[in-house]
């Protein structure tokens, strides 16, 4: 037991991040709990607006205040609750122990500073380095992430780089201090398909080199299937299913996850069926219905679903689902992939 506890590098407990808008309170993240083990890749999936990016930003406390606020929860990293840290301590963690790669490399680099300057900054801010050391360090980083001719590109500005190259620079900045946790918020969404694969391969390769853990946030189930060890599926700010990647893909127990699986193309199936989209739209996060949020779109909904939100419970070992009927899926009483 003690060993498994130690194995956890990051633990998020009951995180709630709300945004206070003129229209009301947006409960972007509403009770998210998960843990991250050493050396693993955790995928967080869900559709746009389900709170996956806000979860990531909350971990580093990058929520834009005063509009957004983490109202509750604990983020335990290295025995410390990140939510209780002062600004100074927090800055020591950011980019050093936990770093982040963002969605859009076109806008995530500062246009008025050279690429080299920005990579060097990541090094200098956390370590006492001479200018020459920092320069050498960042050249090495640029080389590591596969920037050709790093010496020449060091003095280039972001606008002289393509999207894929910029994302490589972002990765170089993120891994500069060999962080324990790397959070990648849709790192490939803004890139071409061929570049996507390159970037993901690079991240995977660097992960094994530095022995760090990765949280990859995406809506691309293919990416999750290939790179993640465990997956958390989110819907409307809440985690609805959390298990290893095999369970999520082959034994999903939440109707939403099942719906997601039905809506992707599979090359490994002989009798290919028509893709089945999930009917309806996700609800507005301002006026969430009582009970299960997904019930409006769920064909398995029963009376109980209207009354109370189903808690996330462990249905089988390492497989947590928030659905009253999960057990029926497990026992085969309800058919998953039939009509």
């Amino acid at each position: 037991m003690a060993e498994t506890e130690n194995n956890k590098i990051l633990e998020v407990k009951n995180l709630r991040t709300y945004f206070y808008t003129d229209d009301g309170v947006v409960k972007a993240v509403d009770g998210v709990s998960f843990d991250l083990k050493k050396g693993e890749t955790l995928g967080i999936v869900g559709e746009t607006g389900c709170g996956k990016s806000v979860t990531a930003l909350s971990i580093l406390r990058l929520i834009p205040e005063p509009m957004g606020k983490i109202v509750e929860g604990e983020i335990i990293f290295d025995g410390k609750d990140l939510l209780k840290l002062g600004q100074k301590e927090l800055q020591n963690f950011r980019g050093n122990r936990i770093s982040m790669i963002f969605q859009d490399p076109m806008t995530s680099l500062n246009p008025v500073y050279t690429v080299g300057n920005q990579v060097m900054e990541s090094l200098v801010v956390h370590r006492k380095l001479s200018k020459e050391e920092a320069r050498r360090g960042s050249l090495k980083l640029l080389e590591m992430v596969g920037i050709p001719e790093p010496k020449r590109r060091f003095a280039s500005y972001p606008h002289e780089f393509s999207g894929g190259m910029r994302q490589r620079v972002m990765i170089a900045m993120a891994i500069a201090n060999s962080p324990s946790v790397l959070i990648a918020d849709e790192p490939t969404t803004a890139l071409d398909v061929t570049i996507q694969a390159q970037i993901l391969e690079l991240m995977d390769e660097l992960k094994s080199k530095t022995n760090s853990s990765i949280i990859i946030i995406t809506h691309d189930l293919g990416v999750v299937a290939k790179y993640a060890n465990r997956v958390m599926v989110m819907y409307a700010g809440k985690p609805i299913e959390f298990s290893n990647v095999d369970n999520i893909f082959y034994k999903p127990m939440h109707p939403y996850t099942i719906g997601l699986m039905k809506s992707i193309t599979r090359l490994d199936e002989k009798n290919r069926k028509k893709l089945k989209p999930i009917e309806g739209l996700p609800p507005s996060l301002i006026d969430l219905p009582k009970g299960c949020i997904f019930r409006i779109r769920c064909k398995y909904a029963i009376n109980q679903c209207k009354k109370e939100y189903p808690p996330l419970v462990e249905i089988e070992k390492d497989h947590r689902v928030s659905c009253y009927r999960a057990k029926e899926f497990m026992d085969g009483i309800l058919e998953r992939f039939g009509n």
Binding site: L62, Q87, G95, S108, L109, N110, P111, E121
Partner: peptide
């Protein structure tokens, strides 16, 4: 200040003064 690169700068661990004085001001 609402640009992505400002979030990047904070995520690097820079202090507020550095983010505003270096990254935001020049732009």
């Amino acid at each position: 200040l609402s640009n992505d690169y400002i979030t990047t700068a904070y995520a690097k661990g820079l202090s507020t003064n550095m983010v505003i004085g270096k990254h935001a001001l020049k732009n």
